Amino acid sequence: MLATGRAWCAVCSRSPEARCLRAPPVARSKLCGPGGPHLAIVRGVEKRTLPAERWRELAATAVSEFADAGYERASLNRVIRACGMSKSSFYYYFESKQQLFEAVFAHLAGTIAGGLEVPEPEDFRADFWGLAGRFLQRLVVAAEQDPLFVNFGRMCYLSDVPAGHAGVSGMMAEIDDWLQRTLAVGRSAGAVRCDIPSGLQARIAIAVLREFDSWALQNRSALGAGELSGLVEAQLGVMKRMLGPE
């Protein structure tokens, strides 16, 4: 549901200014809750409900538009035409391109979080590099099975998203925090070198991982069968040589 007036999270009943406490970590944002706008509720004002099937069609079309064109060049007219909606119908549910972007981002973040099992940092203690490799391969499988997964990743790396966008910046910050805590476990387990300050090590690792991810996502359509998996194996090798103990 999407409504005019003040929206509240349907997952934890907190206001938009307060981050959702019960949604999956990757899905927390000012539009909190993993399900997108059809889960938003409004207290004391009219509810506006977009049918679930219509919302899924709109979300899939919008994420492709944002991923391909970028935020600034994305065209609401193209999205509306592709979905067979009228402008009046679209603006009944959404006030702006920014609101559509936020709703789509929150919806996909929740969908992906619900379908992707992310290990806890402590899980890496027994077999740090083995688990890292298996987790990266799970990401490859997800990317090969669902184009939305790839397009969502491309949305995360758009350079023209308005500065400080709560959904994108919040999710990237949580991923960075997860990586830092995972590296800390690796250091204490002897699987990650300790001769570099932990803060500097984390910044270097995050920068390298983001470059790999951004390049792979932008060039996914040009990669042949098995090439993405091979690239991920190479990525793991680079990280192991860079971070592993000498």
Rank of each mutant, 00 (worst) to 15 (best):
N219W: 10
Q99V: 13
K87H: 15
A191M: 01
G44P: 07
L200G: 06
D213A: 15
R241F: 03
L131I: 12
G84K: 00
P121I: 01
A166W: 07
L183R: 03
F90W: 02
K97Y: 07
A216D: 02
V104A: 05
L243R: 00
F152T: 03
Y157K: 03
P51N: 08
F101E: 03
P37E: 04
A207D: 11
A82G: 05
A234D: 02
A59N: 06
E233Q: 13
W215N: 11
L158W: 01
G244P: 01
I112K: 04
G237A: 09
Y93H: 15
E46Q: 12
I41H: 09
P245C: 09
G133F: 00
R14M: 10
P121E: 09
L139R: 01
K240E: 14
S221F: 10
V11D: 13
L116F: 13
R125W: 04
C83G: 00
E46T: 15
I175G: 04
A222K: 12
S188Q: 14
D68M: 10
I204T: 14
R138I: 06
S221L: 12
A69I: 04
G230V: 11
A166F: 07
S159C: 02
E53W: 00
D213E: 13
I112G: 02
S188V: 09
A202H: 12
L76D: 08
L158D: 01
E122W: 01
V140W: 00
S221G: 08
W8Q: 01
N77P: 06
V192R: 00
P121S: 08
P197A: 08
A106K: 00
A60M: 03
E17C: 04
D177V: 10
S86H: 10
G186S: 05
G153H: 04
E246R: 12
E57Y: 03
E174K: 10
A3Q: 06
C9A: 11
A184E: 09
M242N: 01
E72S: 13
H107N: 07
C9D: 05
A10F: 07
Q218W: 10
F90C: 03
A216V: 04
T61N: 05
H38C: 02
E233F: 03
G230E: 10
A205L: 06
G167T: 04
K30R: 12
G36S: 07
G167N: 02
F212W: 12
V104L: 05
Y157S: 08
A205R: 01
F105Y: 15
A202I: 03
W8E: 05
F66G: 03
Q145T: 12
S221A: 15
M172I: 09
H165W: 00
K30A: 13
I175K: 02
A234Q: 12
K87S: 13
R6T: 15
R241C: 11
L116N: 01
A191F: 08
Q235S: 05
R28L: 12
A222E: 15
G114R: 00
C83Q: 06
V45H: 10
A173W: 00
M171S: 06
G133Q: 03
G186A: 07
D127V: 09
L50E: 05
A225Q: 13
A166T: 11
A205C: 14
